[in-house]
Amino acid sequence: MDGRPVLVSTQHEDATADLVITELNRRRVPVLRLDPGRDFPASAILAARLGSDGWSGRLTVGERSVDLGAVRALYHRRPNIYTADDDTQEARFAAQENRRGLGGVLGALPACLYLSHPQAIARAEYKPAQLAAAHRVGFTVPATLITSDPLEAKAFAAEQPTVYKPLHAAAYDVDGEPAGIWAAPVQPGELDETVGHCAHLFQALVPKSCDVRAVVVDDRVFCARITAPLGVVDWRAEYRNLRYEAVECPEQIRGSLLAFLAAFGLRFGAFDFAVTADGTWWFLECNPNGQWAWLEAAAGLPITAAIAELLQNGEPSRDC
């Protein structure tokens, strides 16, 4: 591959990454795509040497190979985790060696822009850290309780209308079919001893008039108003009945968005806000690797071009 390549680390089937790769191809930027958790070491070969200028050597995937020292950017999308081939001690050991070997080298490339750095993404996925950072950068944040105490949960829900939210959007199956766990209202009488089985996040229900998703690519902010049917708490449960409209981001919100990303060392974030009738934007969460492709078409937001431009021309990343 001639020229400085972009590495795209994601699953083999990722329609969102496909859009960015197509745009990079249009710009004649070399791209090497891999899923480290699945491709290595079966179909990928790593040969990295440490020198005074950092890591150099080759990463080869199939018939394509790149010079690690020449990588201009790593687009860390949604790769599979490094998993053991079986349940033996040797396989588990090998999976961890792969994670720290290939993953460690990919996280320490010289003169490489990270969108975003894998370690920064991992830190930012913790909602307690997100909510604390949101307060610090000036966002308005709903009253929140994280607890495993049923009595605390009941008392909180008795104080104001309350919703339950999962702390992590992990895969969940119902009757063998994939399902989402959406934010949902809860009443004090529904909260029993099962609260004690794990940590739960409860939050004051925001009396919103609409939602906004703000997608931030480095210092560029793209916002879409999302209008759901009356009474819908979590718009993700009503994809077929949503209306979208591109909206301007208030300057104060924009400043807080950039400060939030800087606090975690991120170059990308998909933020969700509930907006009340008085125009207040209430911070709900930030997905440091959130989806955005459907918004581009629905609201006319040029996010693909912004990401490709950053990967093509951006400066090396801030320290993670």
Rank of each mutant, 00 (worst) to 15 (best):
P5E: 09
H12M: 08
D14C: 09
A17L: 00
D18C: 12
L19A: 11
R26I: 01
R26F: 12
R28T: 12
V29T: 11
L32I: 12
G37C: 09
G37V: 04
F40M: 07
F40Y: 10
A42T: 15
A44M: 11
I45N: 15
I45M: 06
G57V: 15
L59N: 07
G62A: 10
D67R: 15
L68D: 00
G69C: 15
V71N: 03
A73M: 01
L74A: 10
L74E: 04
Y75N: 06
P79Y: 04
Y82D: 06
T83C: 12
D85E: 12
D87Q: 14
D87F: 14
T88R: 09
R92Y: 14
F93A: 14
A94H: 07
E97D: 11
E97G: 09
N98M: 03
N98T: 02
G104A: 07
L109P: 03
L109V: 07
A111N: 15
L113K: 00
Y114S: 13
L115D: 08
L115K: 07
L115E: 13
S116D: 11
H117D: 00
H117E: 09
P118W: 08
Q119P: 01
I121S: 10
A122D: 00
A124K: 03
P128E: 02
P128F: 03
Q130M: 12
T140V: 11
V141H: 05
P142Q: 04
P142K: 01
T147M: 11
T147F: 11
S148N: 12
D149I: 06
A153N: 08
A171G: 14
A171Q: 14
Y172C: 07
Y172F: 14
D175Y: 00
D175T: 03
D175Q: 07
E177D: 10
I181V: 15
I181Y: 07
A183W: 04
A183F: 05
A184C: 15
P185N: 04
P185W: 02
Q187R: 06
G189C: 02
C198H: 00
L201A: 12
F202K: 03
K208P: 14
C210H: 13
C210E: 08
R213D: 12
V217W: 00
C223I: 01
A224V: 13
A224L: 08
R225H: 03
I226M: 05
T227S: 08
A228S: 15
A228E: 05
P229V: 06
L230M: 06
G231M: 10
E238M: 11
E238K: 13
R240V: 04
N241A: 09
N241R: 10
L242S: 01
E245G: 05
A246G: 04
Q252G: 10
S256F: 04
L257P: 13
L258N: 02
G265Q: 02
R267Q: 11
G269Q: 02
G269L: 05
A270E: 02
A270R: 01
F271G: 06
G279T: 08
L284K: 11
N287A: 13
P288A: 13
P288S: 09
N289A: 14
A293K: 13
L295I: 05
L295N: 05
A298G: 01
G300N: 09
P302I: 09
A305H: 09
A305L: 03
L310D: 03
N313K: 12
G314E: 08
E315Q: 13
E315H: 08
D319Y: 00
D319V: 00
C320I: 02
